[in-house]
Structures are given as C-alpha cells and as structure tokens.
Simulated scan of single mutants.
Amino acid sequence: MRQKLENRSFLLLLLLVSIAFGLLLKPFWGAIFWAAAVAVIFYPLQNFFLRKFGNRRNLAALTTLLCCVLIVVMPVILIVQQVVSEAIGLYQAIQQGEITPGAYLDQIRAAFPVIPEFLDRIGVDTDNMRERLSNFAVTASRFLAQETLTVGQNTVGFVLSLCLMLYLSFFLLRDGHSLVELMVKALPLGDEREHRLFDKFAEVTRATVKGNILVAIVQGALGGIIFWILGLPAALLWGVLMAVLSLIPAVGAALVWGPAAIYLFAVGSWIPGTVLLLFGVLVIGLADNILRPILVGRDTKLPDYLVLFSTLGGIALMGINGFVLGPLVAALFLTFWDIFMIEFNDEQSSPY
C-alpha cells in the first residue's frame, strides 16, 4: 500500500515538474521547434560529414550548421531586408496619395459593370465596399509601418532567438541519435511504438518543411519574376507575399496574382493581363499542383485533402509554425490509430 502511494506521489510530482519545465521553456518554443526541424532536415548532411571527418561529431555538426546558415539563414535575412524597404515605399505611396485603392476599384467597376450588378443582386453594397477598401488600405499601411518599426525595435529579440535556435541545432545535430534513444527509454509507450512515432515525426517534418518551403520559393520566385517583367511595382514584395500565401494549398499565390490580373484588364492592359493570367494558371498554379503532392503528400503518406485541411487548421491555430505542425499532428493521429488497429483490433494493415 505504501509503495503504491509513493509511486503515485512520484508520478504526480513528475507530471507537475514536467509541466513547470514546459512553461519555463514557453518563450523559446519557436526556437526549439525550428532547431528540431533544422536537425531533422540536415541530419543526412550531418551523417555525410561524419563519414568524411572520421566520426568527429563536433566538426561534422559545426560544418552542417554552417551550411544551414549559408543556404537558408543568410538569404532569408537579405530578402527580408529588401522586402522591408519595398514595404516602406508602398506605405509612403499610399500615405502620399500616389496609390489610391478606391480609384482602382472604380476602374474595375467601370471596366466590368457586370461585377457590381451581380454584387448588387446578392445584396453587396459596392459604394460601401469602396469606402471599406480605402479604409482597409489606410489601416493596412498603418499596420505595415507599425510592424516595420516593431521589427526594428525587436531586432535584438530576433537575433537572440536565431542564435538560440542555431545553438540548440548544433547539439541536436551532434547528439540527436543519443537523445532519441534516451527519450525511447524514458517514455512508457513501448520501444517499437516510440521508434515508429519518432520516425514519423522526422519523416513528416522533413517532408513538410522541405516540400512547402520549396513550393513557396518556386511560386514566389515565379510570381516575382512575372511581376517584374510586366513592370508591376514592388515585384519582390509581392513575390514574397505569394511565397508566404502559397503555404495555403490550392489557393495561396492566386490571392495576389488574380486581383493583379483583373486590375490590368480593368485599365485596358489586355496583353499584360492575359500574360499574367495564363502564367498564373499554367505555371504558378501547376507548380503547386505538381510539386506539392510529390514533395509533401507522397513523403508524408497523407491524402491531399488531409494535407490541405491540416495545413489550414495548423496555420489558424498556431500561426506560421502551423504549416508544419498541422500535417505533423495529422500524421501522428493516423499513426496512433494505425498502431491501435494493428495491436488492439488484430488488423494487419491500414489504408495509410
């Protein structure tokens, strides 16, 4: 009886201490998650350097981390700097009246009268829409300026989080296998199940990060290039916005190039509008439809519809990290049920 009481008390304290430790690390969960993602993605490169350097783990991890900085971190920082510059220019143009969203809407209404007629039929007040669009542009530009100022003020915090992520990534690359084995020993789920869950975590994280980011880079680059060729302003800014929105499967980048094509048609630029429309549908759209199932759906072994809903749900609940965490939760959900069906229902196979 005393032994049971001691065991229950110990488990309760273990749970409380674990929760307290999790809350203690809460400010750094973003850095910890991306450090784990970096370690998972670059672990094959770490193994390559281990073979080259004769199993010198510190040197291999340091070299792998340097490759990560050169390939990923530095280009992202340079692009962000340029995007901030273009965003400030756009904000100033809106504030000075050089860009008037309400006038753009009037041009579209004049060029396509069927659109306001249809909206009026379904009860949408287009005059009120013009005022709302103008107010939204002012609010958005003010928000953009405030966020730019905030980014500048939080540079120290960003650099600190980046350094913490890289620092932790080094140890996860160097000691990742040992840490996984330690967690397998600690968790009371059964070693075989735990190895399977960790393998699924690595598989899905690697597929979603590499796949989604590669699709985002391709769509953003294609969108930015066509905007630049057609002479549209702030091409890099819109390209980056298309890259970010492309994390939303199926419709992401079209939220940028679609309205731009409509505007070109409205102002009588039929050739540029047609080029942008065809390029958006046949090139940018196909890049998403072809690459995402290959890079994300196939490697995660998730159906396309589940990738879509889990990504949207993840982004809605967890922000930008959700494009990885959403499919990861979905994959672990299916894995747990697969284990349950095999071990508890005597099922020998799963549809996933």
Rank of each mutant, 00 (worst) to 15 (best):
V114Y: 11
F118W: 12
L133F: 12
F143C: 13
F171E: 00
P188V: 04
I94D: 00
L168I: 04
G102V: 07
G190L: 11
T148Q: 10
Q96P: 01
A103W: 06
N154T: 09
P101C: 05
E98T: 08
F171M: 03
K185D: 11
V180M: 11
L164H: 00
S169M: 11
F118M: 13
L182Q: 13
A93M: 02
L187H: 01
E98N: 07
A186C: 04
L144W: 02
A110V: 07
G102K: 14
A111M: 04
N154E: 11
I99W: 10
R130E: 07
A137C: 09
T148C: 10
G190H: 10
E194I: 12
F170G: 05
M129W: 07
Q153C: 08
N135T: 11
E131G: 10
N128H: 10
L173W: 08
P116R: 01
P113A: 02
E194F: 06
E192Q: 04
S141T: 12
L182Y: 08
L90G: 03
G157V: 10
R121F: 04
R109S: 13
L144G: 03
K185Q: 09
V184M: 05
E98F: 06
A186F: 03
A186T: 06
E194D: 10
L172N: 05
R132D: 05
S161F: 06
T148P: 01
P101W: 03
L166C: 01
L179F: 05
L162D: 01
T139I: 14
T100E: 14
I115T: 09
Y104Q: 09
S134A: 15
L197Q: 00
D191F: 08
Y91T: 14
A110S: 14
G102S: 10
L90C: 09
A140R: 09
G89I: 03
G102A: 14
H195D: 07
Q153P: 00
T100S: 14
M129H: 06
A93K: 01
F171I: 03
L166T: 06
V159H: 01
A140T: 03
V159I: 08
S134C: 12
G89Y: 02
D120Q: 14
R130M: 08
Q96E: 14
A137M: 12
R121C: 03
T150G: 11
I88G: 02
R196I: 10
R196A: 13
I108S: 09
V159T: 04
V138M: 11
L160M: 15
G152D: 00
R132G: 05
L149I: 12
V156P: 00
D175N: 11
L197K: 01
E181G: 04
L90R: 07
L144F: 04
D191G: 07
P188S: 11
